[in-house]
């Protein structure tokens, strides 16, 4: 398997504060990587560098054979291949669920409405929300909004999906429905996924590899079950004792 994402010696600073220190990280095609760590450990920043929402300060980053930094058109190319799901859903509030999902295919892939809408409807059906296609985001629950957001990211037909704490803003009873959708994507389509989460159950069931970050560094990585059972560093032991198991 070839690597679809490769990071070598990545540093990222905001002003004078360096938040990622010399990160080496690679994701193989079809792999599901779960990143855990305390807040402020740099895990969100790390995945936001992958689709260029943040620009790396130094180091080497290659996404789908495109080397970053790159010109604007190449960055758009990367984003077409790398979908993202956000903690706060970020659905377009002036568009219906269907319009949200059809937006990417129409504008980024240049499809006609008549081509994009069946694609969007099919994806809404996959996340169990075909009946809600005409609802505005404000009329949906948090869990429903996040499922629409997942469908929106998938609609552009990316090769990699990034999830930035997709269940952290949800009420407990809605976390399951979103995790189920994510599990299905990983199993059915063999999608390459990088997931920042605190859901340890998801990590052990779906993850091929678990990465523990703290203070802008990768502290431990390995098979999720093994890493969770036998943490070697004190920081991971401490972290695991604080997260709940679902």
């Amino acid at each position: 398997m070839s690597n679809i994402i490769e990071m070598k010696n990545i540093c990222k600073s905001f002003g004078r504060t360096e938040v990622l220190h010399n990160i080496d990280f690679a994701v193989a095609e079809g792999e599901v990587v779960v990143i855990i760590g305390p807040s402020g450990s740099g895990k969100s920043t790390l995945i936001r560098c992958i689709n260029c929402l943040e620009m790396i300060s130094s180091g080497e980053l290659i996404v789908d054979t495109i080397r970053i930094p790159a010109e604007q058109s190449r960055i758009r190319q990367i984003r077409l291949e790398v979908g993202m799901v956000f903690q706060q859903f970020n659905l377009f509030p002036h568009m219906s669920a269907l319009e949200n999902v059809a937006f990417g295919p129409r504008k980024a892939r240049g499809m006609k409405v008549s081509e994009a809408e069946p694609v969007a409807l099919d994806l809404l059906d996959k996340v169990g929300l075909a009946d809600f296609k005409d609802k505005l985001p404000g009329q949906l629950s948090g869990g429903q909004q996040q499922r629409v957001a997942i469908a929106r990211a998938l609609a552009v037909n990316p090769r990699v999906m990034l999830f930035d704490e997709p269940t952290s803003a949800l009420d407990p009873e809605m976390i399951g429905e979103v995790l189920d959708v994510m599990k299905n994507i990983a199993k059915d389509s063999g999608m390459t996924m990088v997931v920042v989460t605190h859901e340890m159950g998801f990590a052990s069931q779906v993850g091929d590899r678990l990465i523990f970050m703290d203070d802008g560094r990768i502290i431990e990585e390995g098979k999720p079950g093994e890493v969770m059972k036998n943490p070697t560093s004190d920081r991971l032991k401490d972290f695991l004792s604080h997260v709940k198991h679902h």
Partner: peptide
């Protein structure tokens, strides 16, 4: 909201499309 701009960008649309549609 900044998140909406990031959501638009993450879909791979151009700046003009981002301003016109989001």
């Amino acid at each position: 909201h900044k998140g909406l701009i990031e959501a638009g960008l993450s879909l791979g649309i151009s700046r003009f499309q981002l301003i016109a549609h989001v």
